[in-house]
Design a protein around this nucleic acid. Structure first.
Length: 192
DNA sequence: CTACCGATTATCT
DNA sequence: GATAATCGGTAGT
């Protein structure tokens, strides 16, 4: 299976956020059966977070222990813990002339391993299974142990593969932030 | 459907 | 000590 390479992620964070829509996020999950199970979904909604140009980005005030992956190589997972109970997953991406950046994955359309996702999420059905950054990390069992993983290698237990091409993409302001609220850096696949 | 509120803790100032 | 790239429950329209 083909996957986006380092060049794909070495571009402006907004472009990468828009073009990650339709790609497939894949989690190779150890369910105890002896071989890894594929949990996957089509990326449906993203948000771009910049660096010094973006007051709402974790990277705005410079490098810290938490955000250091945002300043490292592109195409890596940046996973952090928030609100005392949720994980959020990002893909690091920025142009060569920028020092940091990441794309928050906000929503997926579940494809493979849906029953396992429901089990991991303690959900009764597949409604709201992977729509929301905290929900999708729970459904795919993504946590801080995956911080810094290389997403461009399809042997990685967490990686991104090529998927579909969205017919139409919308952009809106970002969710849950208190600064730089005027930027239209949230992207989602439009309904047909 | 929308609006509000409390949960709970790593992280940074 | 304050805050946070959220969520699920509850109450109201």
């Amino acid at each position: 299976m083909k996957q986006p390479d380092l060049d794909f992620y070495s571009r402006g964070t907004e472009n990468v956020a828009r073009e990650l829509l339709g790609k497939k996020l894949v989690r190779m999950y150890d369910d105890g059966s002896g071989k890894l199970q594929r949990l996957s979904g089509i990326i449906y909604e993203t948000e771009a977070y910049g660096s010094k140009n973006d007051p709402s980005s974790h990277a705005f005030n410079g490098r810290t222990n938490r955000n250091s992956v945002m300043f490292q190589d592109v195409g890596k997972a940046y996973v952090y813990f928030i609100y005392g109970m949720h994980h959020c997953m990002n893909v690091t991406a920025h142009a060569p002339d920028s020092d940091a950046g990441a794309v928050l994955i906000r929503s997926l359309i579940p494809i493979e391993g849906i029953d396992t996702m429901i089990y991991l999420s303690n959900m009764k059905n597949k409604l709201n299974l992977t729509n929301g950054p905290g929900r999708l990390t729970k459904a795919l069992d993504i946590n801080r142990s995956h911080n810094g993983l290389n997403l461009t290698d399809n042997r990685s237990i967490l990686h991104i593969e090529d998927g579909i091409k969205p017919k139409k993409v919308l952009s809106t302001t970002r969710i849950g932030i208190s600064r730089a609220t005027e930027k239209y850096w949230r992207y989602l696949i439009a309904k047909e």
